[in-house]
């Protein structure tokens, strides 16, 4: 079986995987990083969103072996030295989560939205750009607010 090595949350991590092992399986089952969730099997819910080489992707739809050598950031790697990432802080401050299952993917997706669109995000942009992340608890209201606030707070970073 092939061995893959990635820099995950700043640390080099290796494991022997099958060709069919998905990135999310590598993270959850091989590395024990269970903050990245699986909510569907059709690449739609976005619960599994992580950053690969700085870009958000759905880790349920990528083969681990194809990402040998990549730098991966998961929800566990966002907070630095015990300080929450501004987007994490915004989700907490604005009550943008209830059950919390979609939340890691939402946060990872939101940070990528800021990378793509900048810090001043209007409501319409946020709603449209959250197309790939499904939440069942919040009606998205507080998520949209949190993403706007988090985006603004990231400006100081």
């Amino acid at each position: 079986m092939p061995v893959v090595t990635m820099t995950v949350n700043g640390e080099a991590r290796s494991a022997e995987v099958e060709g069919r092992t998905l990135l999310v399986e590598f993270l959850r089952n091989h590395l024990g990083l269970t903050g990245t969730h699986v909510g569907c099997d059709t690449t739609q819910c976005g619960c599994c969103t992580v950053h690969v080489n700085g870009v958000a992707i759905k880790s349920c739809t990528a083969l681990a072996v194809a990402l040998d050598g990549a730098a991966v950031t998961t929800i566990e790697g966002l907070a630095q030295n015990g300080k929450l990432h501004p987007m994490q802080e915004a989700f907490r401050e604005h009550h943008a989560l209830q059950c919390g299952f979609c939340t890691p993917g939402m946060i990872m997706s939101a940070i990528d939205m800021v990378r793509r669109n900048g810090h001043a995000l209007d409501e319409r942009t946020v709603r449209k750009q959250l197309e790939g992340n499904i939440c069942r608890c919040t009606g998205y209201h507080n998520i949209v607010t949190a993403v706007q606030a988090g985006a603004a707070a990231m400006k100081g970073q």
Partner: peptide
């Protein structure tokens, strides 16, 4: 929230 926004929640499949 602190555990849920940092990926430390414990859901069934975890």
């Amino acid at each position: 929230d602190m555990r849920l926004i940092t990926g430390k929640g414990q859901f069934s499949d975890d």
